[in-house]
Nucleic acid binder design. Structure first.
Length: 511
RNA sequence: GGCCCAUUAGUCUAUUGGUUAGGACGUCAGAUUUUCAUUCUGGAAAUAGGGGUUCGAUUCCCCUAUGGGCUACCA
């Protein structure tokens, strides 16, 4: 038998565990959420664990709000993480509460000379940094004040002052080669890498210390994160080798770019594509939810962004997304978000998604718009069913259904219709008068009777005029449906609108 | 500047050595619909450029260009 090497077998050897580790520096945007989603689906596919960790080693501003937002956003996007053994806590791993753990490993690193003290200030180093090629590592570390250059007494003196950082000692002139599951082999020489600061002068660890340690302690098997980490991964690997730990597998995801300027969504663009999932207080006020996206459509958008062919599948539920998951589906190049494509996904959810849920959401929205008017629930649902296939976003429902609730305030007539009115003023006037009389006479009308009445009108221009008198312009669903629904809402609406239109037509009399 | 990564129509992508380079959204034209939207039919539109390797390169290698990332006591 020839062994078949594929990812499934490699993964199945032990339970896989992945993690999403956002830094609470601001609201979680679609890029971060997409990383979380990939982690989540990956874990579910292979029946593993998906953990949440907050990477907040040295963060002050917006921290609390950001964490709240992260939890809300994950919940809204239906991304569920394992809560671990303590179910009362929302989050099991918060780095700011684990500083003592990092210090333990830090001591080990220093003892074994894998890390060392350094005393140069930022100001001093900045002078060297004027040379853009400057690097603080085996090439230059002899020039500076640190454990290697100072004698024991001097080191003690500096340590007493308590102003020091701890740097990771990067090995001399060595090629670090690692395999990324998506990008393949990555090779970086250690001469390109700084002796990274892993412990700050304010006694807090940096990402380069805390994150790898946590990943090990959390038994993470696959590091799934954005591509921006591709060239800093060697630091991670060096640290793991120093600590003699098993290096996890790496899956780096291509970045999300803005539609127009090609810059990363994290930094730019608030105009065209929404980048946040939901609104939250004043923290976020332009989101997918706010702009009328369904959360299930949003999940499909996340699926699109990790390589699913949404054109083929139209709309997918979580179960199917998990079933169809293949880590290879994502491709290497960065993704430009196309807003129209996202809208299409939302529209597909309206057309092919859960009918009850779609109708309910549209009902809630419409209800909020027509608070003043007393219209029966049943009728609103009927309106929704007749109009919803014309919209792409939830908020659009008002644009295609408003004429059921408010009388036209103005009339927009195309040129040929205006000409028709002027040339056939008497015919038009008689037509409207006849209609008024008809609807006045027949206060009880079935849909069939209305249909017969409309179908008798053979003149296209008069039909168009009829529609304009009811709707205000040449848009909307089938005229028979419009009239029969308006009739159900109130028997006198049609007559009222016809009379209004008659007054308007009067302007054309003198032409 | 250095290092790392990417590059198929406007956009998302299929084709991992042999295809008339396929699909979808968008766009344009026509048909249907009493209007509009839908739907249907059809059209235009791409392997960044230049060198190799090969009988043959979108696919493998090199150079250039473009875009992005990293180059912090941010993550």
């Amino acid at each position: 038998m020839v062994p078949i090497y594929n990812i499934n077998i490699i993964i199945m050897k032990k339970k896989i565990r992945v993690r999403f580790a956002p830094s609470p520096t601001g609201p979680l945007h679609i890029g971060g959420l997409r990383t979380a989603f990939y982690n989540y689906i990956f874990a579910k596919k292979y029946k593993g664990d998906f953990l949440l960790r907050i990477d907040d080693t040295d963060i002050k501003r917006n921290k609390k709000l950001s964490i709240k937002y992260i939890l809300k956003a994950l919940k809204w996007s239906k991304i569920k993480y394992n809560k671990g053994y303590n179910r009362d806590k929302d989050i099991q791993y918060i780095q700011s509460k684990r500083i003592h753990i990092y210090k333990y490993y830090l001591n080990y690193l220093i003892k074994n000379k894998y890390a060392y003290y350094a005393f140069d200030t930022v100001k001093e180093l900045n002078l060297y940094r004027k040379d853009k090629n400057f690097i603080y590592n085996f090439l230059t570390r002899n020039k500076f004040k640190n454990s290697f250059t100072l004698n024991k007494n001097n080191i003690k003196k500096y340590l007493k002052k308590k102003k020091f950082v701890i740097r990771l000692k990067i090995p001399t002139n060595k090629n670090i080669i690692y395999k990324d599951e998506i990008f393949g082999n990555i090779k970086i020489n250690t001469k390109e890498i700084d002796d990274k600061i892993i412990f700050r002068s304010n006694k807090k660890p940096t990402y380069h210390l805390a994150s790898p340690i946590d990943d090990h302690l959390m038994k993470i098997t696959h590091i799934i994160r954005g591509k921006e980490w591709l060239s800093t991964t060697p630091i991670y690997i060096i640290l793991y080798k120093y600590l003699n730990w098993k290096i996890p597998k790496f899956i780096h995801l291509p970045l999300l770019l803005n539609n127009k300027k090609g810059k990363i969504s994290k930094r730019l663009n608030y105009n065209d594509v929404p980048i946040y999932p939901i609104n939250y207080k004043n923290f976020v006020n332009n989101s997918y939810e706010y702009n009328g996206f369904f959360r299930y459509a949003f999940i499909n958008i996340l699926a699109l962004l990790i390589g699913y062919d949404l054109i083929k599948y139209k709309i997918l539920n979580i179960k199917k997304i998990i079933k169809l998951f293949n880590f290879k589906n994502i491709n290497k190049s960065d993704i430009k978000i196309n807003y129209k494509l996202l809208c299409t996904i939302n529209k597909n959810f309206i057309l092919y998604g859960n009918k009850k849920y779609v109708n309910y959401k549209l009902y809630i929205y419409l209800r909020s718009k027509i608070n003043k008017y007393k219209v029966k629930k049943k009728i609103i649902y009927k309106i929704i069913n007749l109009t919803k296939d014309r919209i792409t976003l939830i908020n659009d429902i008002w644009n295609v259904a408003n004429y059921f609730f408010i009388n036209p305030k103005k009339y927009s007539l195309p040129q040929n219709i205006i000409k028709y009115i002027i040339n056939n003023y008497k015919i038009v006037l008689n037509f409207i008068n006849d209609n008024i009389i008809y609807f006045n006479k027949n206060l009880v009308l079935s849909k069939k009777e209305i249909s017969n009445f409309i179908n008798k009108i053979k003149n296209v221009n008069l039909l168009k005029l009829f529609r304009i008198s009811i709707v205000g312009e040449l848009v909307g669903i089938n005229l028979v449906d419009i009239i029969s629904i308006l009739y159900k809402i109130n028997k006198f609406i049609i007559i009222k609108r016809l009379i209004n239109f008659k007054k308007f037509i009067f302007l054309y009399k003198n032409f």
